[in-house]
């Protein structure tokens, strides 16, 4: 169940790069998930929605598959 750790890493990456400055709510996160990334998409969405950061409480996740091992944040929509 490392999807919680991945969700926390994504939160850190977004915060450290200023994408969450002034954001009240994160509506969606679009990710590129490689088939060798070892990520269960269902669990990752569950992990996002259960982060202690309330802004992600109702977040929708969208996944773009590819043949690599990458996990990349493509886009977020926020209020």
């Amino acid at each position: 169940m490392h999807e919680f750790s991945i969700a926390l890493e994504i939160l850190d990456t977004l915060e450290e790069n200023g994408y969450l400055d002034g954001v009240k709510k994160v509506n969606s996160v679009k990710l590129a998930i490689g088939k060798y990334s070892g990520i269960d998409k269902n669990y990752l969405e569950f992990a996002f929605q259960n982060l202690s950061d309330e802004r992600f409480k109702n977040v929708f996740t969208e996944f773009v598959p590819n043949d690599s091992d990458e996990i990349k944040i493509i886009e977020i929509t926020v209020d």
Binding site: E9, I73, I74, I76, T77, D79
Partner: peptide, 16 residues
Amino acid sequence: STGGRSLTVQKNALES
């Protein structure tokens, strides 16, 4: 998604 501002990120999710 339910809308809102769209922000292009294009970053490795495990950057930290």
